[in-house]
Computed example of a mutant assay.
Amino acid sequence: MPLDAKRTPDARFENLPGYDYAPHYVDDLPGYEGLRVHYVDEGPQDAVRTYLCLHGEPSWAYLYRKMIPVFLDSGARVIAPDWLGFGRSDKPVDDAVYTFNFHRNMMLELIKRLDLKTVTLVCQDWGGLLGLTIPMDMPDTFERLIVMNTAIATGVSPGAGFDQWKAYVRSQPDLDVAALMKRGTPILSDAEAAAYGAPFPDATYKAGVRTFPELVMVAPGMEGVDISKRAAHWWANDWSGDSFMAVGAQDPVLGPAQMEQLRQTIRDCPEPMIVADGGHFVQEWGEPIALAALQSFGEL
């Protein structure tokens, strides 16, 4: 039986500032039949490189609007999907549907469906919590990494900042996403903040927003811990690609200290680019980050 899911009206996504990318959809991924997954797909289909840009909570592909043009200018293809429950993807209404493996397996199937090759993984927040567990199962697909304000969660809380965030979201079942983004990223205009809120007309669309903080693996027995431990070992011992790290220094949850721990996990990851004014959603300072990443990879 198909899952009960909401689909945000297209009109909510009209005239978003700085974002005019045509939507692409797939609704028949194995195990997710009937659920429509959205992704941005820009640049040549036969490009030498593909950038796979994975967002986190409670954002969507709009988060990458300042980085996508830089990647496109390099001649690459850019894919920026929305996790189920976010953006233009369908939003199952039952909170219990949302699990670590529900999201991870969807992304594995989408990568296979799009037959992505020579991929640079670009990730932040849940884009990393989930995305950093994927290359070990598709090692021939991924060649480079751009990682920002995220973690590999192996059963320990990232700290008091996260505990406070989790408690706050739990107290806000109808979280005002636009207000949250404006507060955490003061450089946003009101229209940009509203674009982050566009996917969520009311609380019935926000199951994903409510559940993502609850899914972070802060205890040893939680779903995803074993996969993440295996991923951490893989990044430390088997990863041989180029890496680039950028850190929003003002992030109270996954800031410089947490990112240094992650850097020590990723084999041969160089010193990070510190974005002094950047917060958790550091992609809002994304153009200089993308340019610095390309320069570090020898493309500029």
Rank of each mutant, 00 (worst) to 15 (best):
M1R: 05
M1H: 07
A5P: 00
K6S: 06
E14Y: 00
Y19E: 00
D20A: 11
Y25N: 02
D27G: 13
G34N: 10
V37A: 12
V40P: 04
P44D: 11
A47E: 09
L54W: 05
G56S: 12
S59H: 00
L63P: 00
Y64R: 10
Y64D: 10
Y64F: 15
R65V: 07
K66L: 15
F71Q: 08
F71A: 12
F71S: 10
L72Y: 10
S74W: 03
A76Y: 05
F86I: 12
G87F: 04
G87I: 02
D94I: 09
V97W: 14
T99D: 11
F102N: 13
M106W: 12
E109G: 13
R113P: 08
L116V: 11
C123Y: 12
C123S: 13
Q124M: 08
L132E: 13
T133W: 01
D137K: 14
D137R: 14
D140G: 15
D140R: 11
D140F: 11
F142S: 11
L145Y: 10
T150V: 05
A151R: 09
P158E: 00
A160D: 11
G161P: 03
F162M: 09
S171W: 05
L180F: 04
M181D: 02
T185K: 00
D190F: 03
A195L: 01
G208A: 05
V209I: 13
A219S: 08
P220G: 05
G221Q: 06
G221Y: 09
M222A: 05
V225P: 01
I227G: 01
S228A: 14
A231V: 08
N237Y: 01
S240F: 11
D242C: 15
F244L: 13
M245Q: 12
A249K: 14
Q250G: 12
A257F: 13
Q258G: 15
E260R: 07
L262V: 06
T265R: 05
R267N: 13
D268V: 04
P270S: 02
G278Q: 04
H280W: 05
G286K: 07
G286Q: 07
A290W: 08
Q295L: 04
S296G: 13
L300N: 05
